[in-house]
Amino acid sequence: MIDIYSWATPNGHKVHIMMEECGYRLGKDWLAHPIDIGAGDQFTKEFLAISPNNKIPAMVDPNGPDGKPIALFESGAILLYLASKTGRFLPKTDRAKFEVLQWLMFQMGGVGPMLGQTHHFRIYAPEKVEYAINRYTNETRRLYGVMDRELSKKRFIAGKDYSIADIAIFPWTRSWKNQGITLEEFPNVLRWHEEIAERPAVKRGVEILTSLRKPLNDDKAKEILYGKTQYQKR
């Protein structure tokens, strides 16, 4: 039984979708353990032992590569691990594999951090900072433009086959309204997004833990996520 410690966020959804896409059955092959980041669950000693950066998701597989348990944090690393373990969603040839990996890195280094900042300054920041809102909204639009050009040439972001790069990027594009854009501005992204959203495993994955997540509208939760609690020495 693989244990996934997670929450219903884009980074959490990546791993939920991957588990479902790989054929693992929730409740039989794997468990989703909720880590309520608004309540501070990410700072417990038990979770920090798995995820020292106090971020979700994290994973414990009792049957690691050497037959021993392995714990991993960082969603990109978990996707790579599961792709290696199952032989799915990552090509075997070096050329095709690195074409996928560059787009996975694009998500980890660009889409996730930049769209995350866009969400923060447009929705959650206690004061509206026009410079920050414009900076990150414009960068979000630029990144969508990069994806739109690429997807004008191919069915999926890294080629003709669905891969961990698509799994990594898709959950972030679900919140396009919060990012100040419309998908109609990017017709190739829209076409790609709609196709992926219809995959049965994706539909299941994005619902995992979603019923537990509440709107982030209380000061205590915001302080835990963005205030001094986040920066305490542990």
Rank of each mutant, 00 (worst) to 15 (best):
I35M: 02
I35Y: 00
I35N: 00
I35A: 04
D36P: 05
D36I: 01
D36H: 14
D36M: 04
D36A: 10
D36E: 09
G38Q: 05
D41W: 09
D41F: 10
D41M: 10
F43S: 10
K45A: 15
E46Q: 15
L48G: 03
L48M: 15
L48H: 13
I50F: 04
S51C: 08
N53L: 13
K55C: 06
K55I: 02
K55N: 08
K55A: 11
I56S: 04
V60I: 15
D61H: 03
D61W: 06
G64C: 08
G64D: 09
P65N: 10
K68E: 14
A71S: 15
A71H: 07
L72V: 09
F73L: 06
E74G: 09
S75Q: 09
I78T: 09
L80R: 03
L80G: 03
Y81P: 01
L82T: 06
L82C: 08
S84C: 05
K85W: 03
T86Q: 12
G87A: 11
G87V: 10
R88L: 15
R88I: 00
F89I: 03
F89S: 07
T93I: 03
R95K: 14
A96S: 15
K97R: 15
K97P: 01
F98V: 01
F98S: 04
E99W: 02
W103T: 08
M105C: 10
M105L: 13
Q107Y: 06
Q107F: 05
M108N: 12
G109T: 04
G109Y: 00
V111D: 03
V111T: 05
G112R: 03
P113M: 05
M114S: 04
L115I: 13
T118W: 00
H120V: 05
F121W: 03
F121I: 00
R122D: 00
I123L: 14
I123R: 13
Y124C: 00
Y124I: 00
P126A: 04
P126F: 09
P126R: 02
P126Y: 01
V129G: 00
E130F: 02
E130G: 13
A132M: 05
A132N: 04
A132T: 05
Y136K: 07
Y136M: 04
N138T: 14
E139C: 11
E139Q: 14
T140I: 03
T140R: 08
L143G: 09
Y144M: 12
V146G: 05
D148K: 11
D148P: 09
L151Q: 11
R155P: 00
R155Q: 14
R155A: 13
R155S: 13
I157T: 08
I157N: 07
I157V: 15
A158V: 08
A158M: 08
A158W: 10
G159C: 06
K160T: 15
K160Y: 10
K160E: 15
D161G: 03
I164W: 04
I164Y: 02
D166E: 09
I167G: 10
A168F: 12
A168I: 05
